[in-house]
Nucleic acid binder design. Sequence first.
RNA 1: CGGGGUGUAGCGCAGUUGGUAGCGCGCCUGGUUUGGGACCAGGAUGUCGGAGGUUCGAGCCCUCUCACCCCGACCA
Length: 593
Amino acid sequence: MRVSKLFFQTLREVPADADVVSHQLMLRAGMIHQIAAGIFDFLPLALRTKYKIEDIFREEMDAIGGQEVTLPMVHPAELWQKSGRWYQIGSDMARFKDRNDRDMVLGMTHEEIMADLAKKYIKSYRQLPTMLYQIQTKFRDEPRPRAGLLRVREFTMKDAYTFDRDEAGIDAYYPHFYQAYFNIFHRCGIDVVAVKSDTGMMGGRMAHEFMALTDIGEDTLVLCDACGYSANRQVAVFRKPEPPVADQLPLEEVATPNVTTIEALAQFLDIPESETAKAVFMIADIDQPDGKVKEQFVFCVVRGDMELNETKLTNAVKARRLRPATTSEIKAIGAEPGYGSPIGIARERVLLVVDELVARSPNLVAGANREGYHLRNTNYGRDYSADLVVDLVAANDGHACPNCGAALYTARGVEVGNIFKLGTKYSIAMGATYLDENGEEKPIVMGSYGIGSGRLMAVIIELHHDEAGIKWPITVAPYQVILISLATEKTPEVTEAAEKLYADLLAAGVEVLYDDREERAGVKFNDADLIGIPIRLTLGAKGLKNGVVEGKLRRNGESFEFNIATAVDDVKALIAAEIARINATVAPVPFED
RNA sequence: CGGGGUGUAGCGCAGUUGGUAGCGCGCCUGGUUUGGGACCAGGAUGUCGGAGGUUCGAGCCCUCUCACCCCGACCA
């Protein structure tokens, strides 16, 4: 491709609306154009990289037995009504009516459609396991798209679905995806950590998220370097400290004027925060047996030195959603904001959930449900009892690893992929069953596995750039080579040589961008750096005189001199070496169950 | 959905007490230049986000509205 013909435009200045690096660079490199919040045009440079990434998806999916299909983007509401998600999902799902007034949706994901397809075509255990995947546009009307391609509403996703006869089947398939996903990310030049994740509303048995570690990440990960433990903070567990052994002392009210926070309380009474109990008041929407949704007041108690983990709470009480209670709601159940405890409240009106550590810790200081007073020596079991005693708290820096006891630490990550043991939820809903050897009809056990290609592209840039621009890993670069001609009107022989080299590179199958523009050298160099082509060839009058063309690696600045006569082969060898360098990172990864 | 911010040329921005819109980059023409974002000369480009209002007169003041960005909520 000739740069003079390339449909793009580089920008010197950073567009005002972009504040993450990948977004800025993609705009400056002329890769993408936003047309609405979270909705983008992909220009040729971006599209080429997108296709490179997606080809890697295809190779890795095919390698573990996948077959590619394309399912529609527009779905009849009926399928989503069957699974129930038509009713569960809110305005994230774009809905409309067709000309015949039928409800339709834009596909956010394709479990329903895939299960429906399986119902039609899978009849026998002999057909299992099977795996289908697609690379398709999805639309989720996210409340807050942001950060360029990192969080969008319309996006392309590779989504794969496995169909197995039983749990043992998916248990056997799942690790293949685990490995294939590492292969994909490594081949794209990025490192990821797989973390256990929340199965949430999907109700599956096991899920992993593949996270790229970067400060702009929206998720917090809990990691252990000693043993490799890794989990999304939403589900991370830790080894809790052993509470002191002590006799239960009598309850005692103590005046604590204007002391409404745990920090202030600990300071006021000169005790560690670990000797206090903190009340957290939430309102949960909980499904009732009759199909209605009830707003339930949930009274949580965690130790003062720890934080409530809302995901754990949501799962513990099987809430559809959770929100903080208002002051009047808190007072209505007989508690006092700032001085709350489960002692003396309208117990029958709340769902009382207590962290198991609180239940084991003696003589904690808690609120008295009276403004200006706390209680010393509250003891679970003696002074109150809960509806649920579970792990409710968030793991944090310095907590002990649940496996090995070493200190955990937290890091930010961007989710670039996930794998999910779905179970039979969708197959049962859609009636996707098979007959086993005994002629018995059984639901197909499904798994789903997603990677967003646009987000992955953005993450690659986040992890591979410098002040000058993008540094594409060669496996996903829009072009492998950029040939810069420094010809002027006075040096037509340079143009001639560059044209010939360009033609030869093309003929040799090299993906080459040829900067034939009438621009100054600096402009061309800067644009080449910005768009991030891994190998730069420069042909100027001086080099030509000596029969050399200069080569330079974008990733580290290393430079080469190639004899023009052998340049094509030399460049091909360099490309091969650079590809091999990335592929060398592809290796077996132990499956962390 | 709550809080904050911004809308003026393709991009980045300025625009005074209300007086009929400008700068830099980019773009077009010609010339000189030519190895890390050249220089000179000339040129094109605006429903000042939209609607209503106040006023002799609105980019500027008032009301409504839309879009986008950021923080939070949310995130199969």
